[in-house]
Design a protein around this nucleic acid. Structure first.
Length: 737
DNA sequence: CTGCTTCACCTTTTT
DNA sequence: GGTGAAGCAG
């Protein structure tokens, strides 16, 4: 593709964004407006026109977005790939490792995950005698995380928060920071906040870093928190070009510290900035866009704008009310079956994960394959974290977080009392728990012997860390620690699942080695794991997708159902407190609606099972913001219990009576439930019957059938050479073949 | 120190 | 309804 070809299939606005020269630019990229195309073409154009790829940096929010961007740019420029295309957090991680650590950490620092963070907060609270009745560790952690998201240090927090709660939280904050430092660890927020502080604190470092970045590109700018915004300003202010891409209507992470203001104030922050608006939508029909726009236009904190559909009028958007959540689910799934289109064209979106249950029940009952995005995450499972903890200790015995996690797993007779004494000794002498365990006073003979044995295990792992690769090291620590034996004997469901998860983790390490080749390191695998999420897995074909509205951002489906258009969900009960929160909930609905290409249906239940009891539900206030073109249909299969008809007719809405969907369940139907596989850092896939697959040992084959449900779903695969084999779908380690 | 039972809670979750 | 944490017995 030559330079002109890069522009050939672009509209004038897209072209402008791709061609814009030096200086700051904000690309307002409405839903479905071809944002990724613009971004990748722009990067390719810079490289083609002679910019040094080593001085081009592109930052995204998700691994998945980064991966997609990298692939698409690579397709255009080959090996002249920009030096960094990755997430904010991976940029920060790389920066801190290159800097050889910071703020008291060595280059070998580890990353504390969410559970580690909460544990440290809890400990700090205990030490300060703060009752968990007054503040839960989770709530205190949230306050600390908020502060860090704004790059506020513990000291600044203490100086600024003077009220009762503030002073107490400040105390915990300070202690928490000390513990993190003692553990040679950073938390997720530090990966942004610490680079910001470091760059602010050193002119030399800042100049050096800036010199390495000629062109900077930031995706999803509306989701930046204050720390990320500060980072972009530090790095981008002097850059030759800074390109920020975003859409304030799709800002749905304010509760995690994201601020719409960053994108709304871009022109003030970067005077003379060029603004390019991509207003042509290539995804949704005009009818869908009109409905979505009508809702979001009620927001005040936005730039007034409109998207124009390039996809024709299409069919009417529908709002359908049902007697209860069961009927809602039954209708949606029947409707999906009735359409007789590939299941992967359908998505059911909801506000809270708990809503997935009624849909899952119904999908299983009707024998329809589905995937649930989200839920219990692979890397949050206890056995996976335990295994990783042993791995971490092999890399750094001073990793107190890992030490605490597994010092007594499997049980070695080292309990809370011993650990408290160790912690006290460690604090006093300013050493790690591992170090303190060598000769801590006041420890029982029994515990001392157990600790000696534990240290021997860690030492052995440490010795091996030098010579073994990521996968072999993992295998070694699992054996040496006796951790694998812990679950080896039992045939209980849970234990079998644990064993399989451990196998899957080792496969993840192998996959990492394969992908990185020469560049694969023990540390590198751990970093990849620390930043990996389940969102990295691709969607399987042949299955209906179920997920939250949040998870749906960035995706699109021909046919979308947004379920639970009710007060309490949209807006969520706990997010209806302020106008800002309501606006975010409205954007959430907007994001959900704009996922649909051809057909959009919003559903609600008049009553639903919630927290174990049946509750009456009211239609969402947002329903009244939909335009008259939206068809409103009351499901007449059973008499509505809580519905006042007269009022609604005056709204000018059109009401129709419909037959309740009564498709007979497809029997005998194979219940083909495709569950998500663990998000190994790297590519993954789900499989359905007939799919060609490849197994590392057995070679290529074809999926004969899936059976069972949920986590236990099993795949039968017929291999060309090895014949028929059965796997647990989630752990089969298959790749598309 | 461990394992069991009872009790309170309940969003969203890119990293 | 289902989970995680605290409290208590062995």
């Amino acid at each position: 593709m030559d330079a002109d070809a890069l522009l050939l299939d672009l509209n004038p606005e897209q072209r402008e964004a791709v061609l814009a020269g030096d200086g700051p630019m904000l690309v307002l990229a409405g839903a479905g407006s071809g944002k990724t195309r613009v971004v990748t073409r722009r990067l390719a154009r810079l490289v083609r026109e002679g910019a040094d790829p080593r001085r081009i940096v592109a930052v995204t929010f998700t691994n998945k977005a980064a991966e997609e961007m990298r692939e698409r740019v690579a397709a255009l420029v080959g090996r002249r790939l920009p030096s960094f295309v990755g997430t904010f957090h991976s940029w920060g991680l790389r920066f801190l490792r290159r800097a050889g650590g910071a703020e008291g950490r060595t280059a070998n620092f580890s990353i504390a995950d969410t559970a580690d963070q909460i544990a440290l907060v809890r400990e700090s609270m205990e030490e300060l005698g703060l009752s968990e009745q007054t503040f839960t560790p989770g709530a205190v952690h949230a306050r600390i995380s908020d502060a860090k998201s704004a790059a506020r240090s513990a000291e600044r927090f203490a100086a600024e928060e003077g009220d009762f709660a503030g002073t107490r939280i400040a105390g915990v904050f300070a202690r928490y920071e000390k513990k993190l430092r003692a553990a040679n660890a950073f938390d997720f927020d530090d990966l942004i906040a610490v680079p910001v502080r470091t760059l602010r604190g050193s002119d030399a470092l800042r100049d050096r870093e800036r010199a390495g970045i000629e062109h900077l590109l930031v995706d999803e700018y509306q989701d930046t928190n204050a720390a990320q915004d500060a980072l972009i300003k530090l790095l981008g202010e002097k850059a030759r070009s800074l390109c920020a891409v975003g859409d304030e209507d799709q800002s749905i992470y304010a509760w995690r510290g994201a601020r719409v203001e960053h994108i709304l104030r871009f022109e003030e922050d970067f005077p003379g900035a060029r603004i390019v608006a991509l207003t042509r939508n290539y995804r949704s029909t005009a009818t869908i866009l009109e409905a979505a726009a009508a809702v979001v236009s009620h927001n005040r904190r936005r730039r007034p704008k409109s998207l124009v559909s390039e996809a024709g009028a299409g069919q009417a958007v529908e709002v359908r009310a049902f007697r209860d959540d069961r009927v809602e689910a039954e209708w949606v799934i029947s409707e999906i079956r009735r359409a007789e289109r590939p299941l992967s064209e359908f998505a059911v979106l909801f506000r809270v994960n708990a809503q997935s249950r009624s849909f899952e029940d119904e999908l299983m009952r009707q024998g329809v394959s589905y995937v649930v995005i989200g839920g219990m995450k692979f890397y949050e499972r206890a056995e996976v974290k335990d295994a990783i903890a042993y791995y971490r200790l092999a890399l750094d015995p001073a990793d107190d977080l890992a030490f605490r996690r597994v010092v007594n797993v499997p049980a070695r007779g080292i309990g809370g009392v011993t650990l408290d004494r160790l912690a006290a000794a460690a604090r006093e002498r300013g050493v790690s728990l591992f170090e303190a365990s060598v000769d801590a006073a006041g420890i029982t003979e029994r515990a001392r012997i157990a600790l000696d044995r534990f240290r021997a295990i860690v030492a052995a792992g440490r010795a091996k860390a030098e010579e073994l690769g990521p996968a072999s090291l993992l295998e070694f620590v699992l054996e040496a620690s006796g951790y694998r034996a812990l679950y080896a004997a039992s045939e209980e469901r849970e234990d079998v699942a644990r064993r399989e998860n451990l196998i899957e983790l080792v496969s993840a390490a192998r996959e990492y080695e394969r992908r990185e080749g020469e560049a694969a390191t023990v540390r590198g695998f751990l970093d990849a794991v620390s930043l990996a999420t389940d969102a990295d897995a691709p969607r399987p074909s042949g299955a209906v997708t179920l997920m939250t509205l949040h998870s749906a951002k960035g995706l699109e489906f021909p046919d979308v159902y947004v379920a639970g258009l009710e007060e309490g969900f949209l807006p969520h009960v706990q997010s209806a407190g302020s106008e800002d929160e309501i606006e975010e909930e409205r954007r959430l609905l907007y994001v959900g609606m704009t996922r649909a290409r051809r057909r959009l249906t919003l559903t609600l239940a008049r009553q639903r099972m919630l927290y174990g009891e049946t509750r009456p539900r009211q239609e969402s206030r947002f329903a009244a913001e939909l335009p008259p073109s939206v068809a409103r249909i009351e499901d007449a299969s059973r008499p509505p219990t809580l519905f006042s008809r007269g009022e609604d007719e005056e709204d000018g809405f059109r009401w129709e009576r419909t037959e309740r969907s009564r498709l007979p369940p497809r029997r005998p139907a194979p219940v083909t439930v495709a569950r998500r596989r663990a998000a190994v850092p790297g590519a993954l896939a789900g499989f359905s019957r007939g799919a060609r697959v490849r197994h590392p040992t057995y070679g290529s084959g074809v999926v004969l059938q899936q059976e069972g449900s949920g986590e236990e779903a099993r795949l039968t695969v017929f291999f060309d050479r090895a014949g028929k084999k059965k796997f647990v779908a989630k752990f089969a380690n298959l790749t598309p073949g």
